[in-house]
Amino acid sequence: MIRFNQVSKVYPGGTVGLNNIDLTIGKGEFVVIVGLSGAGKSTLLRSINRLHEITSGEILIDGQSITAAQGKRLRMMRRGIGMIFQSFNLVKRSTVIRNVLAGRVGYHSTLRTMLGLFPKPDMELAFDALRRVNMLEKAYQRADQLSGGQQQRVSIARALAQEAKIILADEPVASLDPLTTRQVMDDLRRINRETGITTVVNLHYVDLAREYATRIIGVRAGEIVFDGTPIQATDAAFSEIYGRPVSGDERLGGQALEAN
């Protein structure tokens, strides 16, 4: 589904974001990427849809190079990749339904989308997406009137309306309280299980990674230092990923892990 072939990213000034990454993520997986801030996990995630351009190597989506894609081909490939951000990236003054319909922009002309002329099947997709995240009753409410958790659910609905084959979520719960965090993670897991959409999530909390992932990838200094199941992600494994024992603020429960 997603294949990294010897992928490296070097930022101006010489900082290494990714160092010769070889990685395959299969269809339908729920992958959580963990690591310290600056370890390269956001670079890894955002290189999949080319929000970050790589320096060398190649990334394949369903066997086709997104690295080499240009113009219409690149737009078509990105259409199949939904993105969920920590800051939600909603148009705050627009209604919920208009924000969800933004997921359909890649399917229509610029003029049509600017005028808001979405056909009936798009409207049905958008309403169904809102239903999946229990936000249907908020369809005509302005986005800036919603709580943070509700806004993140709208961004998930936008990715569903996009008919994405892949969902990338970059720290989607970092700004949410513990209860809302679990509600959003529950939505992502349920959608992954019901639809088979490949889901790749960056998370700060190691206990959430263990609870929700089918596979955990640990990144340190731009390299993959762990790739295994949640059961294999022991306290000692997390300490190796972080280069130190995991601190309490890296657990949603707030307690430090003891290396063993």
Rank of each mutant, 00 (worst) to 15 (best):
H204Y: 05
Q162N: 13
L45H: 07
S239I: 00
D62H: 06
R190N: 11
I84H: 07
K138I: 00
R182N: 15
G26S: 14
R182T: 05
G14E: 04
A233Q: 06
E163Y: 03
L23S: 11
M83T: 10
S56Q: 13
M1W: 02
D207C: 12
R75F: 08
T24S: 15
S94I: 01
A69F: 04
N19R: 14
R189I: 12
I61M: 03
A236R: 05
S239W: 01
E163P: 00
R93L: 02
S239P: 02
R131F: 01
L168T: 13
R46Q: 14
D62P: 00
A221S: 09
L125W: 06
A233G: 03
I33N: 04
A213T: 03
T181A: 14
I97K: 12
E29H: 04
H52I: 07
M77F: 06
V173A: 11
S47E: 01
L257E: 04
G35Q: 07
L51M: 14
R189C: 12
L18M: 12
T24P: 00
Q151K: 15
G254C: 07
L60K: 08
R153I: 04
L208C: 13
L188M: 15
F238P: 05
G28W: 07
L125Q: 12
N20S: 04
T24C: 11
I217E: 01
L101T: 13
D122I: 02
D144C: 07
G14W: 01
R78M: 08
E53R: 13
G26I: 03
G71L: 06
K9F: 10
L111T: 06
G253K: 05
Y107H: 15
Y107F: 14
I191E: 08
M83E: 09
Q255I: 08
R190Y: 07
S247T: 09
A169K: 10
T43M: 10
R153Y: 03
A169D: 10
G106M: 00
L146H: 09
I2S: 10
I21W: 03
L115Y: 07
E171Y: 10
N260G: 15
D187V: 06
V105S: 14
A39Y: 05
G149V: 05
T55L: 07
R244I: 00
I81W: 06
R93A: 08
R158E: 15
Q70H: 08
H52K: 04
R104Y: 03
Q64R: 12
T229P: 01
R79Q: 14
V154K: 09
I2N: 09
I224R: 05
F30L: 12
F88I: 02
L252Y: 15
E250V: 00
S155H: 10
T113D: 05
Q141H: 08
Y205S: 15
L125C: 09
F30K: 06
N5W: 00
I59Q: 11
T199R: 08
E124R: 13
M123S: 02
F238W: 06
T198R: 09
E250K: 02
